[in-house]
Nucleic acid binder design. Structure first.
Lengths: 148, 148
DNA sequence: TTGCAATAATAAGCCATGTTATTATATGCG
DNA sequence: CGCATATAATAACATGGCTTATTATTGCAA
């Protein structure tokens, strides 16, 4: 085993997040904030639990991301008229202005990371990563059932 | 584009770290602590800068990982007789005892994550991840040079 | 040889992430 | 209806990760 495939996956994921972070910083966002913003554009007017699921973080993690974004004026929390427990997230004028530049950055990053890979290789990479994720998710579910 | 390949990579890396973390917790370690310990076994008696490079974190990050591990009795900081700036890291009796169980956990995780993938697919995954990492690293270096 | 740049470690301060626990509200079932 | 369970959000606390800055030491070069 030359390079452990586990370390490779862990490290390349971190490197990607870091690179993304550096690029979106020019807009005043962090990586996960940018991601949440893209999700807000694509699926508007949902509650926090929905977005936590979308960007694959725990609800408490999303709460604190939103805390900072609200403070910086990127999002608004709005009471859900149909569920008094919930808060819906809305874009602001300020954030609507950076949607397009952000899209440009995202597309460029995906292009850069995949440079030199054929379309087939990119599909293959996606397929293999999905398989690995599915394996790990399945394992976690088994363990959760076992432990109650 | 169904699932963005960037998010896929970022998320699967995080999921892997989380799963690893849950498993090594039975030994009293966190994921990155376990990884440092494996590195200590493989390349004994080096200074902190060396291990920071090995596990791909910044020196300050390693400092605090070592702080906690030293406090918990997993490693010792030893003054380097040849360089008064440096501290060498040593295993302890306590940590030597968990090296074997840890190895078992690491091997099992790599096996689980790659379940259902042929040897060729695993090689392919490694190759593609290395390519992506190289692309991102190259981009960062260009940007660093450009910015001074 | 002296003086300056590079290196090793760390501190301060920020953001992200998680587990566990708490509060408020919904919902479903008997 | 009334209660048990589930869900939405968050607080408290811990770890990991980074940037920037500081201190001590080393090593090279004029």
């Amino acid at each position: 085993m030359e390079t452990n495939i586990g370390y490779l996956l862990s490290d390349s994921g971190r490197l990607l997040r870091k690179t993304f972070d550096e690029r979106v910083r020019s807009l005043g966002l962090t990586a996960v904030q940018a991601r949440l913003l893209m999700s807000l554009v694509k699926f508007p007017d949902n509650n926090q639990a929905f977005y936590a699921e979308r960007i694959e973080v725990e609800p408490i993690t999303l709460t604190r991301i939103v805390d900072r974004m609200e403070e910086a004026g990127w999002v608004e929390r709005v009471f859900d008229p149909n569920d008094r427990r919930a808060r819906l997230l809305h874009l602001t004028d300020k954030s609507r202005e950076i949607v397009e530049p952000l899209r440009v950055i995202v597309n460029a990053l995906v292009e850069d990371m995949a440079e030199g890979l054929t379309a087939q290789e990119q599909d293959m990479l996606a397929r293999l990563l999905e398989k690995v994720s599915a394996n790990l998710t399945a394992e976690r579910e088994i363990r959760n059932v076992a432990n109650g």
